[in-house]
Nucleic acid binder design. Structure first.
Lengths: 88, 88, 88, 88
DNA sequence: CGGCGCTACGTCCGTC
DNA sequence: GACGGACGTAGCGCCG
């Protein structure tokens, strides 16, 4: 089947359109994601232009993220303990 | 120095604020990126709910991206040839 | 070419033997890894047999690992700062 | 309760020690596993250094593993048939 | 069989 | 400019 062309089999076309829709939605999102990642790079580049060490900046961001993740895990663990104690 | 607290050394504070600004801009972008990736996952989930095979869908997206990259390579090469020939 | 069989082309055989050597070394290591993972499972099973909640145990292990990673990152960051300040 | 410190409640301490024992056994195993995975990486790196394509090598290992699994299935099935026939 | 965690892959950055 | 290393993301398998 050639997508986008008129088809004899209506059902197949409909399915094809649906598929195409999903694919294109994902592709659009991936474009947005790429744009955002590009923005990040530009921020780092700007910081670098002002004398900051990009490697350090990245590490700071990473550590802060890990700290947040840690905190969430801790809370999840606490919840687990509590529910385990409540037994049910 | 504790960021966010008043400081005696103005220069250091300014630098700290600037640093903080970069960090937070990046973190904001990372949040947006995470949100977009989440959207993608939801699209795939929706497609899955309609009977599509997510793994295959991902492959399709990947292949189409490679095709696009290939095409851009071709065009870049073409441009190179043309400029080498003195066109434009 | 059938590996392991005598070959007319010596070079090819040598390459085949070398390849085979790499593959088998990796496979040996994977066996060891599988054995170790099996040991882990047994430890968890034993703990479970004594009334411990495996899910919680796993989470504890994970958090402790993250804590360790965090600490190492912190130290790495400190080193970065120090070297950045020392600016050789 | 602070693990490792003397405690008034013997039962709790014993349980804590037991728990600590499980955790540390698992952590030790995870270290060993990490070491082995590192060894694998080194083997692949060595192979790469001799011109082999690591990705392909990994595929070979994976396929051989699947083959072995298949073969075991076959043998298990054969055993089943034989015992069903009253052999052995 | 659905979710979660782990492993493996691709990409990007720094280095030589 | 290429290589190697590190990070983040995607695929896979196990567990529940």
């Amino acid at each position: 089947m050639a997508d986008g062309s008129p088809a004899i089999d209506g059902a197949t076309t409909v399915a094809g359109d649906r598929l195409r829709s999903f694919i294109e939605r994902v592709e659009r999102l991936e474009e947005e994601k790429a744009a955002i990642m590009n923005d990040s790079k530009e921020v780092y580049a700007e910081a670098k232009g002002e004398g900051y060490d990009v490697k350090i900046l990245r590490q700071v961001v990473r550590i802060r993220k890990m700290d947040r993740a840690d905190r969430q895990e801790q809370e999840a663990l606490l919840d687990l303990y509590l529910s385990a104690l409540g037994e049910q």
